[in-house]
Design a protein around this nucleic acid. Sequence first.
DNA 1: AAACTATGGTACCGATCAGTAACGTCACCA
DNA 2: TGGTGACGTTACTGATCGGTACCATAGTTT
Lengths: 203, 203
Amino acid sequence: MSTAAETPLKAGKSEKIPPRQRILAAAGELFYRHGIRAVGVESIAEAAGTNKMTLYRHFDSKDQLVAEYLRQEAGKSDAYWTELARAHPGDPLAQIRAWLAGMAAHVADCNERGCALANAAVELPEKDHPARVVIEDCKRRQRAELAGLCGRAGLSEPEMLADELLLLIEGARVTAQSMGADGLDARLVRMSEALIAAHRGNS
Amino acid sequence: MSTAAETPLKAGKSEKIPPRQRILAAAGELFYRHGIRAVGVESIAEAAGTNKMTLYRHFDSKDQLVAEYLRQEAGKSDAYWTELARAHPGDPLAQIRAWLAGMAAHVADCNERGCALANAAVELPEKDHPARVVIEDCKRRQRAELAGLCGRAGLSEPEMLADELLLLIEGARVTAQSMGADGLDARLVRMSEALIAAHRGNS
DNA sequence: AAACTATGGTACCGATCAGTAACGTCACCA
DNA sequence: TGGTGACGTTACTGATCGGTACCATAGTTT
């Protein structure tokens, strides 16, 4: 009944989110949940509490908005890595394990729909799409990050192990979209522990 | 210049492909290459050398055509499994290895775009879409098939190993779409061999 | 007060989407 | 020979797509 907009509290200036951020947040939600091609710019603007014109004042095209959305997701991923590093300083193995646990939880979460970047790669095969460079970049950075951690953890063949873990996670995230995720997370941690153990003692 | 349609050869009856098959073949090509949502029914009909009306005489809707396309892909997958069984009769381990080699080759092939079923699951999140039951069914069947082979091969924890291999392959197929496939196939066979070896001697 | 900027609102553009109506044609079969 | 059903062709529907023109308004700056 009473409109919340009637209480600007006079302080002003700080609690109003600029439209660009609202649009990006709405786009993130809708693109991730329903797929990029399934969401029109109109519905994004509406979900952001604005309109198409304002959207196009901040983004050149839908493709550019998609690219920006993926840059945002890549940023979240990077932030997660640094958060892990801060939570387990000087303990690369603990960082790896925490990452794996986080990914397993992600896989088990029914509201999640896998990796936004990987999904976008599936949905946008055109190799000149502005999104593709973002995707490839982020994936490569993650691989280097994980391989670095494996190396610093003293595990043998760190790049090989990083690939094994990444493929396992990526496979689990996409499989959860096809078959559901019942028990997949538990199997996932067992598998990754086995992989880590295999890279521990021997060459 | 000369139209090939002018030589019915009088024998008739055998070399003309009925429109339903042509449509399904064209849909398979276009859906897989460009994505399901990116392809319109008009272009499918055109690629099949027919028109939209004939398409809708054979398929109730685009969604039903998509489901039929995925049934077709699931059938190809099943046929591949039986072919492997015929090529290596009574040798389940050889069947597993041949399957892995085939998947690795698939991953390395730049013209391929991963698993059609998994891609469809990414592209069609609506859980009441007629395609989803096809996808889940096929994935489950494959899992049971591979687990059965692992068991008959005398490998320990056959279901666990089957999951490991499936996740690895699925992850590779989707990663190849994000990062390319350079050297991924070789790493893939090494990893799967290591996994198989780990399930050989001990419990 | 005047001017400028950012935003919102509405209406529109051409193109394409999934799906349908109506008609013509051809082959095959009784 | 006449009929029947599958196929091809054209044109159409209403909806939605990405993207834009135009104008009104609010807030800030000078």
